[in-house]
């Protein structure tokens, strides 16, 4: 159930990303199927991440967009990708952002999430790891959607 809606919508999103391009600063790296996409991301303008390139991996369930996608920052030394040092991003790439959990809405999409994470990074004043990073990374499930994050502030 629901697989038609996800396949149809992802096909549309992919066509749009390929025709109009993803948001400025983002590049579609891999989207060979409708299950897992990788998009590189840079923060535009002045920021503590100037000159750095990150990559986000999107995994979609067959219930997308009713169900939020699983989104993580990629750690891939070969490509030079590392999760950004940010108070809401764990070193294993997991992101604590309400938009991926309780704040998800089916009218959101990959492009709007890219913009969200770009601005989340752009507004960061100081590169700091989440206070509970070590503990979380040691015990984290591979799918961050299985983590019940507590959202500490709303400005992300």
């Amino acid at each position: 159930m629901g697989s038609r809606i996800s396949a149809k919508r992802l096909t549309k999103e992919l066509t749009e990303l390929k025709t109009n391009g993803p948001p400025t600063g983002c590049t579609l790296i891999q989207a060979d199927d409708l299950e897992c996409w990788v998009v590189s991301l840079q923060v535009l303008g002045e920021s503590v991440y100037e000159g750095e390139e990150f990559a986000l991996r999107f995994k979609f369930s067959s219930s997308y967009p009713i169900d939020s996608p699983e989104v993580t920052f990629v750690n891939c030394p070969e490509r030079g990708w590392k999760a950004p040092v940010h108070p809401h991003i764990y070193t294993n790439g997991h992101i604590c952002a309400s938009v991926l959990g309780s704040g998800w809405s089916p009218v959101l999409n990959v492009a709007s999430l890219l913009l969200t994470f770009q601005s989340m990074l752009a507004s960061c004043k100081k590169k700091e790891l989440p206070p509970d990073n070590d503990r979380y990374v040691r015990t984290a499930p591979s799918n961050p959607k299985q983590t019940r994050f507590v959202y500490h502030d709303d400005d992300v």
Binding site: R4, I5, A7, K8, R9, E13, V107
Partner: peptide
């Protein structure tokens, strides 16, 4: 439709 992104005049993917 904001959810399936199919035209209102079309039908939902199911």
């Amino acid at each position: 439709c904001g959810i399936c992104r199919v035209a209102y005049d079309g039908c939902c993917p199911d």
